[in-house]
Nucleic acid binder design. Structure first.
Lengths: 367, 367
DNA sequence: CTGAAAGCGCTAACAT
DNA sequence: ATGTTAGCGCTTTCAG
């Protein structure tokens, strides 16, 4: 609002924030020609083009995004709705997205939904009112009719991330949660632990369900027993450990379905004065800061977070079909990115390498 | 752009996305009256107001922010420029800001500058083109002429965060870095360590300079020797430790100027197979996930991150002076928020409380 | 208290 | 290839 203010009272001469007509005047052409020069340069003579380019440079002109947006062209705004900004997964994701968005000359609006459907819907509406050019949505539950409807009605490029946006007819960028969990559990099975327990929070979330599926797939193929625990804090994690870890006897293993559970587990293990991995082996989905600095360093399944974010953003800007983004998207679909199994010590590997062997062997998921 | 598309081809009847004139028609009043009703309701008869309210509800109308913005009213967009989105400090900060911004019916554009002045300036320009209503900027260096000029010319509410935006004539929300560092160093001095080393990364940043000042203030008042080290990774941290920690002899203490250095230090200590705090005591500025889960739990100076973010955002929306935000801001100024000293074990406290004593004594900075 | 009318800066027919 | 014109949806004088 103040920029306008300024513009109004100051821009009699050649002062602040030039507009398209200033360029036209200086280049001695009509407004439309400048506009055409700006948008692809079709139907603009080379002489006119030169003068326009010069004028633009001289005035340091940049088109007003708001006016452009009002007229129906792109707004230069991409919206991103995530459950939380402070969660490391989403903040890394957002940073990757923002980089791509900026490269395209647009800006990124981020909203934290706190897993509240009211906020999701309200923000969606808000973003549409801002005429966003595209939307990235991390939604971990089954989309409700209302959300699906709103998204379809909006007819703009949408891509899901972390969880699938089914029914909307858009692409979703997902991590191979099932595969990753299966691989992790297989790794634990290979160690020969007597029991392998799965521990998670919020079992209703899509990612958690997939990881649990992967765990159970490996468990059943390994003819082991499925033990599913849900924890909410250190104490419940401790209770779960108490239920399954014998004071003496062979070590058991735990597959932590995300880094939060891994943390609770780690705290619980310390609280109970158990030893990792001699009494309890731990393997976690999601890497986290300091995972390799803990004693012992924690083995994890690492998601390609930045790749996911970049890919989602790129998809938004990618024209699909002959008519460009209007045909976006082609239909429901997912792009699955592979996580990596990062073996450190908490799973029972690398034990005799001594204190200095901090560098975990890194194994790609596909070999 | 698609919302417009939609609007254009569908909204003949009472379909998608109603506009102000639809409300006016339904309420049988002129557009101007609806607009007035929307903006404060001055000069609107109570009957007209009622019909308008009813029409708005019936149509589920919400004003188009783009049009509003073009006309010169508020855009409903707040911009935030931070060095990094994935850094925990800024992501927590951004989340707090976003909450307040959303409460005010606006949206938050976040840009990651990666400490690159080109990006800062470019994004600033971009944001102005979007007609943002206000700006929150985390800038950790001395603002350059160009940045100051651009910010002043924009004449909109700006608040600095984390680092002071001097010369711009705006308020900055800062943590008492000096005080926090002094307090931390005093605490270490009270333990009676033979040496207290300060370790930091990027010593040119404002926050780092302040913390170093605080450290040195305490050191000189404690008649101790100032030892300043700059580290960039685990190995340089190890080298620094090697320079100052005797293989045998009294323990030394380290004041880590932020959580990154603390992490490097922690890794280096493990790498060198030293013991915390028996050979090296550590106290870190900035709390971090897992700080209380490490062995031993790390004592830290905790910044009131969310408070800082919330306060910055609120300031943006706070009308200043009789003419509202136009008079914003009153002038250069800082609001200092106190950090808290969270004592865990790495500084040498709580040592004999045993493994279960995880809950650090928490001391407010002022008492 | 209210409505008609003039734009905000830009784009997209439609002429030329 | 270029200029003229008519809006996008809203706010805001300016008359009534």
């Amino acid at each position: 609002m103040f920029a306008t203010y300024l513009r109004k009272y100051v821009s009699n001469g050649l002062s602040q924030i030039p507009k398209l007509s200033d360029v036209a005047k200086l280049a001695k052409v009509g407004n439309a020609t400048v506009s055409r020069a700006l948008n692809g340069g079709k139907n603009v003579g080379s002489e006119a083009m030169e003068r326009i380019t010069a004028a633009i440079r001289e005035l340091n002109y940049q088109p007003n995004r708001v006016a452009r947006s009002l007229k129906g062209a792109s707004s230069g705004i991409i919206g991103m709705i995530v459950p939380s900004i402070s969660d490391m997964f989403f903040s890394k994701c957002a940073e990757a997205v923002e980089g791509v968005v900026r490269q395209h000359g647009a800006v990124l609006v981020v909203v934290a939904s706190h897993d509240d459907d009211g906020i999701v819907l309200g923000s969606l509406r808000q973003l549409l009112l801002h005429n966003v050019d595209g939307l990235i949505i991390a939604y971990n539950k089954t989309p409700e009719r209302e959300l699906i409807g709103a998204l379809q009605a909006a007819r703009l490029p949408v891509v899901g991330i972390d969880g699938p946006l089914t029914g909307v007819g858009c692409t979703s960028i997902l991590c191979e949660n099932f595969e990753g969990a299966r691989l992790a559990t297989d790794h634990l099975l290979a160690h020969g632990y007597s029991k392998i327990i799965s521990v998670q929070v919020k079992p209703d979330l899509y990612t958690m369900r997939e990881r649990l599926r992967g765990y159970n797939d490996a468990i059943s193929r390994g003819h082991a027993q499925s033990i599913e625990e849900v924890v909410v804090d250190r104490d419940s994690a401790a209770a779960a450990l108490l239920r399954h870890v014998p004071r003496k006897g062979p070590p058991v293993a735990v597959f932590a379905a995300n880094n939060l559970t891994a943390r609770y587990l780690y705290e619980a293990v310390h609280f109970l004065e158990l030893s990792i991995p001699h009494q309890v082996a731990v393997l976690s989905f999601d890497d986290f800061d300091l995972a390799d600095t803990l004693t012992p360093p924690m083995s994890v399944v690492q998601q390609p977070i930045e790749d996911m974010g970049r890919m989602a953003a790129k998809l938004l800007f990618q024209p699909t079909g002959a008519r460009g983004m209007q045909e976006f998207p082609a239909g429901d679909g997912s792009i699955l990115l592979s996580p990596r199994l990062v073996i450190r010590q908490s799973c029972g590997c690398n034990l005799w390498a001594g204190g200095r062997a901090r560098l975990g062997r890194v194994t790609g998921i596909n070999g």
